[in-house]
């Protein structure tokens, strides 16, 4: 890890963050070139600028999906960093503790029983994700808060919610069941600008809110006592983190289904790449974007011409990461 001078973390972190952002843009551009067919970079650039016969395909079909990879990746990376900070544990991410599953169950319920406009689905996802977070938190409260207890309870809740979702799909109308199954792995395929506009806006607001909490987050990593006695309003800080973390998870899940493992892996990869102390937000967000865009590009290519849901790729790669992480944590 000594490619960069081992100077103060304050110098290395911004440099690596810029590099990750550039890598994300590069992969995103390749993803724009790569649809069902390959478009040359020149044609793709021209298409982006509204010229050439590929313009419609690139700006209306491929762009929203690639943009969703970037923005949802940011959202998932942020949500992961938020919950890993709150639980002080690299396993404490929303996909592991059942928030994705909770949001997904809510979205399915709305689709199966209430018709389901985009707004209703989002409302259902946010409601059940919040309820899930609340239940896990209350169950883990016995004699004070414990991050590890919350994670173990979250894993159990995750399993139960996944079962509930399967049951809903089995009981639902055929077309709902087919749509639900295709969506249940988490997929960016076929998203258009109308579908991603409001999630992008929500993620933008949540990212701004979290940016405002960044310093308090660093301070809270020193422990409750130091955080409070250096002036952090810990109760307010935690509340804002939970709301933003649940909101980011539910928003992505409502729009794209439960895309797992990005939130788990991105914050840890990001902090190792940047050599940062603790689990900072910006590297997590950027790494999340890079991971999701790359995973979606792989999903477009491996089984061409039929694209895979991106969640299949993140699950396959992330599953290996989770096994490694579990082994490492158990040894500790």
């Amino acid at each position: 890890m000594s490619v960069l001078p081992a100077g103060p973390t304050t110098r290395r972190e911004p440099v690596v963050c810029v590099l990750i952002a550039l890598a994300t843009l590069a992969v995103a551009f390749v993803a724009l070139c790569q649809g069902a067919t390959w478009t040359t970079p020149g044609e793709t650039l021209a298409g982006l600028l509204g010229r050439g016969d590929q313009s419609f395909v690139i700006t209306q079909w491929r762009s929203p999906q690639v943009a969703a990879g970037v923005v949802f990746g940011i959202a998932l990376g942020l949500a992961g960093a938020v919950f890993q900070n709150l639980t002080r544990n690299p396993l404490g991410s929303p996909d592991v503790i059942g928030l994705d599953a909770g949001a997904w169950t809510g979205a399915l319920l709305v689709v199966a029983f209430a018709g389901g406009t985009a707004g209703q689905v989002a409302g259902g996802a946010v409601t059940t994700a919040t309820a899930t977070a609340l239940v896990i938190y209350l169950l883990s409260l016995k004699q004070g808060f414990s991050g590890l207890r919350l994670i173990v309870i979250g894993i159990a809740v995750n399993a139960m919610l996944t079962a509930v979702s399967s049951w809903i799909v089995l009981r639902a109308e055929l077309e709902v069941a087919i749509a639900g199954t295709a969506w249940s792995a988490g997929s960016l395929n076929g998203l258009d600008w109308d579908e991603v506009a409001w999630p992008f806006a929500v993620v933008g607001v949540l990212a701004a809110v979290l940016a405002g909490q960044s310093r308090a987050l660093h301070q809270a990593a020193l422990g409750d006592a130091v955080a409070v006695t250096t002036g952090v309003r810990l109760g307010v800080h935690r509340f804002v983190l939970v709301v933003a973390g649940v909101g980011a998870t539910a928003t992505v899940t409502a729009a794209a289904g439960p895309i797992v493992f990005v939130a788990l892996a991105a914050p840890q990869i990001g902090r190792r790449l940047t050599g940062s102390a603790g689990v900072p937000l910006l590297p997590a967000a950027l790494t999340g974007a890079l991971l999701l865009v790359t995973a979606d590009l792989v999903a477009q290519v491996v089984t061409r011409p039929v694209p895979l849901p991106v969640g299949v790729v993140t699950t396959a790669v992330g599953g290996l990461y989770l096994i490694w992480l579990l082994v490492k944590e158990v040894k500790r």
Partner: peptide
Amino acid sequence: ELGFLPQGLVPPEGIRVEALVRRGRYP
């Protein structure tokens, strides 16, 4: 006004000395 040093402090993973001392400037 009041600086406090509690017991049993655990530093964030990977933090360097100066970065930790800087956190004292938060207020």
